[in-house]
Write a protein that binds this DNA or RNA. Sequence first.
DNA 1: AGTTCCCTGAGG
DNA 2: CCTCAGGGAACT
Length: 283
Amino acid sequence: MPELPEVETLRRSLARHLVGRIISSVTILAPHVLTKDSRHRISQIIGASVSDVNRTGKCLAIELNNDRTVLIHLRMTGRLLWNMPAGSFDGHVHVVWTFSPSADAGDPEDSLVYRDVRKFGRIDLVEKHAAHQSSILQRAGPDILSVDFEDFSTRIRARRSQIKYVLLDQQVMAGVGNIYADEILFDAGIHPRARTANLTADGMQKLYASTRRILEKAIECGGSSIRDYIHTDGEAGRFQEQHRIYQRGGETCFLCGAVIQSIKVGGRTSSFCPRCQRRSKAA
DNA sequence: AGTTCCCTGAGG
DNA sequence: CCTCAGGGAACT
């Protein structure tokens, strides 16, 4: 569920907390969440300091000053929590990093916890120049906010399929998941099952504009907090208050009052307004 | 492009 | 108790 806006919100707060800090220890409680070949190399990060925190799609990259990178993909239920009280640790805490106090500020020792109820998330440790070969990144296309209109439309049109299926395909472009795919398609007035080959020039323009508008607005709101999703410091995002279509099947459309439909596309629940999102018109 | 798997909490 | 959701890989 953390998608591009949630991961970008995380990236910003991690960058604030971590850059310049030295990793003093790593405790692995569930080896399973580390990729196989990184498990025995994890000690390579001890003593290194964090130089930067980057993001591609839904993947976080914690860059270290020893030419190593820690890649983290949270999948469904992964969470990164800053200074989680040790007393509230439960069976879902899988990795704990500690950071030594910075020399100048006299900070206390801080910790970053990786907690993941379903254990779908993955963490990898790679050499910086080989990060794109990690099992977490090797299939990912470019970050969807990094492409221009030309590239965007070329990539979409290269797949002859249902538009929502293509938006969810991280190989085409990375970052959009089920929530934002539904919100973007509603905003653009495009049916989730519209064939990419049938998109008009105007439809493609709208799709590009809506993708940027929705994702950028969601980032401004600190992402969406649904179910138990919270950010590193425990605060919630606010974009869920602006959801107009996601998980609203059976309710009425805010724009036209029609009953919102719920169908499956690519195995994912998809809500759309049958009046605002015409399949035949493709926008 | 559909299915299965991973995994667990939530809801019926 | 049973069923389902869901990101992504792997398989068909």
